[in-house]
Design a protein around this nucleic acid. Structure first.
Lengths: 330, 330
DNA sequence: ACCTTATGTGTAACCGGTTACCTATTCGAG
DNA sequence: CTCGAATAGGTAACCGGTTACACATAAGGT
């Protein structure tokens, strides 16, 4: 391995001078600088980040913790985070928490042991001690917390829109899938939807889930049509659940959207490719990740951050799993 | 930050002794060990991985490079890798290469600068200098190389099976989507399919792609039905492409599988939830990631590795986008 | 000409661990 | 009782960078 000493020797200067050239700090004579740069070139030297990190007590690494990258919503968040971090030369240590407190704890610990400069997390436990104790910046992503800055979508508004749309488009016997109780945005969506349904006096059934896992969604979809066979509108807790419901509806020979309308949440990339394509409440996942990374970078560079809680707008994406909106409301 | 010195002082021993306790090396008296452990507990000390990594010239980090985590096939690979690494206490530095040589180069460089002990990569450039030069273990995932160990699925066999199935189930005017030319497994699939089609004298059209990106797939799907309006069987280069084709077929009012059969490749988690659910050639993505991680760990621990190239089996998953196999072949 | 300030560079301490080396004590074998 | 091996634990060098500090010289002001 080529070290700064090798470069120094090769260029006939001290390590301090090489370091000054590398970091563009202090005074270095133009000629010296050139010699050092030549030596760096010739030896193909790249500084060891570990040594640097040890002295500075700061790396160029960011910890990213997501529940499960296998769930198609999260890769987009991850990608947004990565792209922004990449722009500023930060790298990610990545982990799946599986919503397990122990796994999160372990990951956070190794993040810290590796001198990460910040942690971006979609945790279900934002108030846990291991977050509270952290002395580095933390940004919660797709989660809400009063303790720390966060980036999330307006779940309640999303729920409201979904309910309003499904009512406007004629559903009168609505089922609402309620996402995991411990995930705040999932509850916001649910509440938003129920609010509007109640306001309009539309009857609604609630099917609860305690996980966003796919097999769980398939199971709940079956249960839904058993419990409420005459359901004519479904507000799902996310697109995966919506897809499961759509699939089950078609399997049962129901017509979508004629017999039953379905609205998802998230707008994962494949939603538009289903048949019928899924109407859904879009969360700007990529942008959320990107924004979270941006916020993190500000925090790291200790610029005073104006906005510490960023709520992103949601929008209704009209596709084929909902009916056309009548000119005159029902 | 609590350091080993603090622990040593608190326990009334030297740092060497603390280190011995931590690493279970050398002789430490039972009583002393207990005192040190108590001190560690009380101070809530965790060793700094950076310092450790500097001295040992090895971290507990693995670099993972994938083309694009947003493509639903890759999260499964990633998850497999992560789960296995997690079991052995390794962490991942993760990057998306976007199939860009420059990005790969940059990532590999920072991986090395951070003393990663190994790199797992789904690269399109396995023979590039920056891989050749590496003195740490490299495992190629979902890629083939004669330079380095690799884990991949049997693409040629997959292609053969797909063609055989689509012929057996009655397609006579088949279109084959050819994946990106520079991705070896994509070409293997293609060749396998073409081989069998030719053997059976079945006419086939080829539509080429140079990327696995979704919008590209949508475009090619449109092109396919323009070029070959009477196509009655499509062998897609992956499930994303298959989904795009399926979507376009349905949009054009064709019946699947009655008018046109479609076979995908990969078996991404959502394929089974489409309508009709997608028949596809399954690659065991999660297992491939897991195996690659396993291979990497063996390489790191310098166990002599018997198998350096692991080819995983593929299988036909019969679902709704292909017709029933007739008792008597056509 | 003299003092101050700016420029340029080297020496060595430091970051937080690991480990080679040294010393001291205990123990069992002969 | 003696001696080598096993046990126990401390001191300091080392990993590869960064930077405080010291020192030397050049440039500018009065």
């Amino acid at each position: 391995m080529v070290t700064i000493k090798d470069v120094a020797k090769h260029a006939g200067v001290s390590v301090a001078t090489v370091s000054r050239v590398l970091n563009e700090t202090g005074y270095v004579h133009e000629d010296t600088r050139r010699m050092v740069e030549k030596a760096i070139q010739e030896l193909n030297y790249t500084p060891n980040e570990v040594a640097r990190s040890l002295y500075k007590r700061k790396s160029r690494l960011i910890g990213l913790l997501l529940p499960d990258i296998t769930n198609p919503y999260f890769p987009q968040l991850a990608r947004g985070v990565e792209d922004r971090m990449q722009e500023s030369g930060f790298r990610l240590i990545f982990g799946n928490s599986d919503e397990s407190e122990q796994k999160e704890r372990d990951y956070i610990q190794t993040f810290v042991q590796n001198n990460v400069v910040g942690i971006i997390s979609s945790t279900n436990f934002p108030s846990m001690d291991f977050y509270r104790r952290l002395k580095i910046p933390v940004v919660f992503l797709d989660r809400i917390s009063s303790d720390r800055p966060a980036v999330y979508a307006d779940g309640r508004e999303g729920g409201r829109i979904a309910a309003q749309q499904i009512i406007d488009r004629g559903s009168r016997r609505v089922a609402v899938l309620q996402g995991p109780a411990h995930i705040r945005p999932a509850q916001d969506r649910f509440q938003g939807a129920v609010e509007v349904l109640q306001d309009h006096g539309v009857s609604h059934e609630v099917i609860s889930t305690d996980s966003f896992a796919l097999h769980e969604a398939e199971q709940k979809a079956k249960k839904l049509f058993e419990t409420v066979p005459d359901v004519d509108g479904v507000i799902a807790s996310n697109d995966m659940a919506a897809i499961a419901v759509l699939h089950e509806a078609l399997r049962l020979g129901k017509k979508v959207p004629e017999d039953v309308q379905i609205i998802g949440f998230d707008d994962i990339p494949l939603s538009g490719l289903l048949f019928p394509p899924l109407s859904t409440i879009r969360q700007p996942a990529y942008d959320m990740g990107y924004k979270a990374a941006e916020l993190m970078i500000q925090l790291i560079e200790e610029q005073t951050v104006e906005l510490r809680n960023i709520q992103m707008p949601v929008e209704f994406i009209e596709r084929g799993s909902t009916r056309a909106k009548p000119e005159k409301p029902y």
